[in-house]
Nucleic acid binder design. Structure first.
Lengths: 222, 222
DNA sequence: GTCTATATATTGATAGAC
DNA sequence: GTCTATCAATATATAGAC
């Protein structure tokens, strides 16, 4: 993109828009999140908003990217076992619990990803890459935990990673129809079925956001 | 609905439309499955098609109902262990393998169900009820297998049922982005993690449609 | 029952002024 | 950078003839 005018200001405004849009979508969901509606919510005209993102799809992609970033930061503070490897069970369970608070985002993800499944869709590559990324990241985490002894060594890390993230998606789809079902609880139960488990079991009840380790460990960007 | 004119003929035509539409959608997917397109495919005008189903949503609901019926019939011939209870692992694995052959239907299900997650959507109740139905059916099957000894007795049948069907949905979402991943294989692997397993393991390789038992057992309509 | 023609409603995108 | 005004593309639904 050509940089003219106040470059820094443009970025800042973009950030501001993104954060607001993220909050709006989280509340009103996908259907009402038209470009017009979003523009109005951030105090811009439709054209003004599109000026920053070009198309609706690009805007939504950026929203989801931002969400992933935020989630990654949350993970850093909650899912590392005292400087050890990422505790995947703890991580995904925490994120799933978090999702309960932002139904609109869950809906955005569900609908947008299902639409973009079509090969020619502008967001197709984004989701494809994201899937691969989280799967490979998840598989790595599992492998580390296996060496660590916190997960059984005979598990197929790659296949398990695919299964875990598929389960997460599926639970969200289900939850949208029945908010009574506890996504985090089901996820924790799944981990408990894997045999040996350290952290997954202790994460049953409340949604306490106790900062286990306020250190500054590596950022898990997926 | 008021019955006038040839009632039987109306039903027959409806059936014919449904079967054709099912095949069309299975091939072209959701986006191209507009009422117009579907109407043309069955040799009717848009209005002519809508005459039978009222709205697009109703049409799609009926298509999915029909699909479930067909799937249920398939199950009857493949997933019963010699007159015993339904082998859930075998059943869902077989269905998942079947889904590989009808990408358009997988897409229809994914997109339509994500759209209908919105509370006011015409198809919301259909999916809600369907989820409940398959979950309760799945939980029953698991319970029976536990008594039967083909599944560990300490499993939480209800929670496991939710997990299984969520996993199925999630694998489909993933598969649309990466048709290389073997849904049935991952599903089978999941079952293998549950400890004791009888039938799930033998279902690894090919997609042979050998009719294990050509009997006429009870129909599993979920 | 089925068709033609049309109404209606949305929405994302663009042109061009300021 | 931002806005007003407008375009253009769908797609569903309906009116009314045959």
């Amino acid at each position: 993109m050509a940089r003219r005018g106040s470059y820094a200001k443009g970025i800042a405004k973009r950030e501001e828009i993104l954060n607001t849009a993220l909050a709006i979508v989280a509340r009103v969901g996908y259907s009402r999140a038209t470009v017009r509606e979003l523009a109005q919510a951030v105090g811009l005209s439709q054209t003004g908003l599109l000026h920053y993102f070009g198309t609706k799809e690009q805007l939504f992609i950026e929203i989801l990217r931002r969400r992933d970033e935020v989630d990654g930061q949350v993970l850093d503070g909650v899912a590392t076992t005292g400087g050890g490897p990422l505790d995947l069970a703890k991580a995904v369970t925490a994120l799933q619990r978090r999702n309960t608070q932002v139904p609109g985002l869950v809906q955005l993800y569900s609908r947008f990803s299902s639409e973009a499944a079509e090969p020619g869709h502008p967001a197709h590559d984004f989701f494809r890459d994201r899937y691969r990324s989280i799967t490979s990241g998840g598989a790595s985490a599992i492998s580390e935990q296996q060496q660590d002894g916190t997960l059984p060594a005979d598990l197929d890390a790659e296949r398990l990673a695919v299964i875990v993230f598929a389960l997460i998606d599926g639970l969200q789809s289900r939850w949208m129809y029945d908010s009574e079902i506890d996504m985090a609880d089901h996820l924790a139960y799944f981990w408990s079925l894997l045999g040996k488990r350290e952290a997954a079991a202790e994460d049953e009840g409340e949604q306490g956001t106790r900062p286990t380790a306020p250190a500054q460990p590596p950022s898990h960007t997926w």
